[in-house]
Design a binder for these strands. Sequence first.
DNA 1: TGAAACGATCACATTCCTGT
DNA 2: ACAGGAATGTGATCGTTTCA
Length: 245
Amino acid sequence: MNFQQLRIIRETVRQNYNLTDASAALFTSQSGVSKHIKDLEDELGVQLFIRKGKRLLGLTEPGQSLLGIVERMLVDADNIKRLADDFNKVDEGTLTIATTHTQARYVLPTVVSAFKQRFPKVHLVLQQASPIEIAEMLLHGEADIGIATESLASEDNLASVPFYQWQHSIITPLNHPLAALTEVTLKDIAAYPIITYHGGFTGRSKIDQAFEDAALDVDLVMSALDADVIKTYVELGIGVGIVNE
DNA sequence: TGAAACGATCACATTCCTGT
DNA sequence: ACAGGAATGTGATCGTTTCA
């Protein structure tokens, strides 16, 4: 068993079980890829791939179990390389942060600015993605840090720490009936069409949960990724906006 | 049904490691 | 430094599958 075999297993799955594509992605030959898979299967004594004739259709049960371990081993191998780099070049290198549009636009600018002042030689890469994609990028070692409001904490193979908390606010035109109230309840809000974030983004699940807990049906007329976009449509009178402060 | 795509296998070449 | 062997990779080719 060697790392090349493990890389081939991972790449074959990523390339939808096409060995030709997997070999191209790894800059090696199709015959070599085929041989490595067979060698590993022979060594382990189990079939890792479901075959129909000469086609690979998917992973067998042991193959699926193995894939999780392979992913972790390859990420750890990359981490070992980075660890060495970190010690060799304390304040150099690249830091890749996977984050959502909202975090990148409203939260990270001050953090990034402070970071660049402290570590001017570090090249920062901001990768915008959905929370689910961020989790995938972290698991595949494509990002060093992920920042998002959803999904990450529920992923078993990722360690998450609270960064900050924010509150949800409603936004309405000045002449809207809700604007005249001194206290606004969920029931008051649910009486109007709602505009808020896309599912899976920016605390949307918390918003849904709050209305669900209150047994209130919501007329969600629009969703968007960006608070500015939500504000624009609130100004047009499309609905009441729920955004982060 | 035939062409194209694909995986498996074989023979051979190259690289690397080990013992002398 | 050198020889021998193991490991690894490649190209050619064949058989199978897919699809128009």
